[in-house]
Simulated assay, not measured.
Amino acid sequence: MKTWHALWAGAALALSLFAPSAQAQILIGQTAGFSGQVAAGVKETTDGALLYIDSVNAKGGVNGQKIELISLDDKFDPKLAAENARKLIEENNVSAMFLNRGTPHTEAIIPLLDKHGVVLVGPSTGAMVLHQPVRKYIFNVRATYQREAEKAMTHLASMGITRIALMYADDSFGADGIAGAQKGLTAAKLTPVVVEKFDRAKPDFPPIAVKIAKADAQAVLMVASGSAVVDAGNALRSAGSGAQIVTLSNNASGGFIKSLGANARGVIVTQVYPNERAVTFPMVKEAQELAKAKGLTEISPAMLEGYAAAKVLVEGLKRAGPKPSREKIHAALESIKKFDLGGLEVTYGPDDHTGLDFADLSIIGTDGRFRR
């Protein structure tokens, strides 16, 4: 898939070859699963980013140059993500990469970032492997999955829930989330009643659901993406389990709620941004106003993630000057200290590309909205 932004960017690039007077563009590359199991969340994070990018372009762009986002669909396949990144970096000659999705997918493109000195801003993953050790060209914006999962376990324990099951995708994302959950359980002096992993590409949920039901689990943390959580939840209910379903912020989208259908109410989803209706945060109020101007009635947590990432990207481009080379953008991002996103601050340096540490919990209400 190539979005209209990509088509527009391609047309603008072609025009610039034949018309020297055409306005210069800053090309930014994105590879993400616009189709497949994470499509709903990817669309919302990208829409959130475009709220801010479009508003910047409407005011003349950055140092007189418009930002053009070239978005390619990797179908949530790490191999395709790497190939898309190669095309964007080597053929489209993008100045930076932005807002990709997935832990193994991000790991797959790191060699290209290192080879060409291209930064990746705001990967839509909270993988600890992207934080420690510091990845020179990756600038995280959101908190880690480990922090989210640990907070979720602490919350469940504080409610008196002791029989907790863990199920996770058999990949680096799943292992990362479970590591955080285990920290929280250890702190609460609890042992999970079931720990099961599944094949991300070909999951078989019914046998796992039966184990969880037989263990009489009161809650189950699902470290998985989009449709996998939906299918696992359906299998759980079919097996007769009424366990509280808990999942991480990678599923914090309105599309995810819709996909859950009748099983949506009561699902706990961790969050890495403030309440999307908390206008006391200037960033939230900004995003709401821009969304309203585009005819959108509300924003989602996933949109806020994209919006925040876009603010960091634009700040880096501004600091890089009128000719933002890849090297200048990297140096500019590392110079950011206490940058106010609108109620949340981001600081980077050679030894710190972590970004935010904000983590919270939400529950899906009867109205199909996240409640804090």
Rank of each mutant, 00 (worst) to 15 (best):
W8Q: 13
G10A: 14
L13A: 15
L13T: 15
F18N: 08
F18H: 11
A19Q: 11
P20L: 08
A22M: 03
A22H: 07
I26A: 10
F34R: 07
S35F: 07
G36N: 03
Q37R: 13
G48F: 06
A49W: 02
A49R: 04
Y52H: 15
I53Y: 02
I53L: 14
D54R: 13
S55K: 15
N57K: 10
A58T: 09
G60I: 05
V62F: 03
N63W: 02
Q65T: 05
Q65M: 14
K66G: 08
I70M: 13
K79R: 15
A85V: 03
A85I: 03
A85E: 05
L88H: 00
E90H: 00
S95K: 14
M97H: 04
M97I: 11
F98A: 12
F98G: 12
N100I: 08
P104A: 07
T106H: 00
I109E: 00
I110S: 00
P111E: 04
P111A: 05
L112I: 00
D114F: 02
K115G: 03
H116N: 12
G117M: 03
G117P: 10
P123V: 04
T125N: 00
A127I: 01
M128P: 01
P133Y: 12
K136Q: 14
I138E: 03
F139C: 02
R142M: 07
Y145M: 05
Q146L: 04
Q146T: 10
R147V: 03
R147W: 04
M153I: 03
T154K: 06
S158V: 06
M159R: 15
M159D: 12
G160K: 01
R163D: 13
A169I: 06
S172L: 00
A181E: 05
A181R: 10
G184W: 02
L185V: 09
A187T: 13
A187P: 04
V193W: 07
K197T: 11
D199N: 14
A201N: 15
A201K: 15
D204A: 13
I208N: 02
K211N: 11
K211G: 07
Q218S: 06
A228S: 15
V230Q: 09
A232T: 08
G233K: 08
L236S: 05
S238R: 13
I245P: 05
V246P: 06
V246E: 03
T247A: 01
N250R: 03
N250C: 09
N251K: 09
S253N: 08
K258P: 10
G261S: 01
A262I: 10
I268G: 05
V269L: 00
T270I: 03
R277T: 14
R277I: 10
T280N: 10
A287M: 12
Q288H: 12
L290H: 08
K294I: 11
E298P: 03
I299A: 01
L304S: 03
G306C: 04
L313G: 06
L313R: 12
V314S: 08
G316P: 12
G316W: 04
L317H: 11
R319I: 02
I329D: 02
A332F: 00
L333I: 05
F339C: 04
D340L: 05
Y348E: 01
Y348G: 00
D351Y: 09
T354M: 09
L356G: 08
F358M: 04
A359D: 08
R371A: 07
R372N: 07
R372G: 11
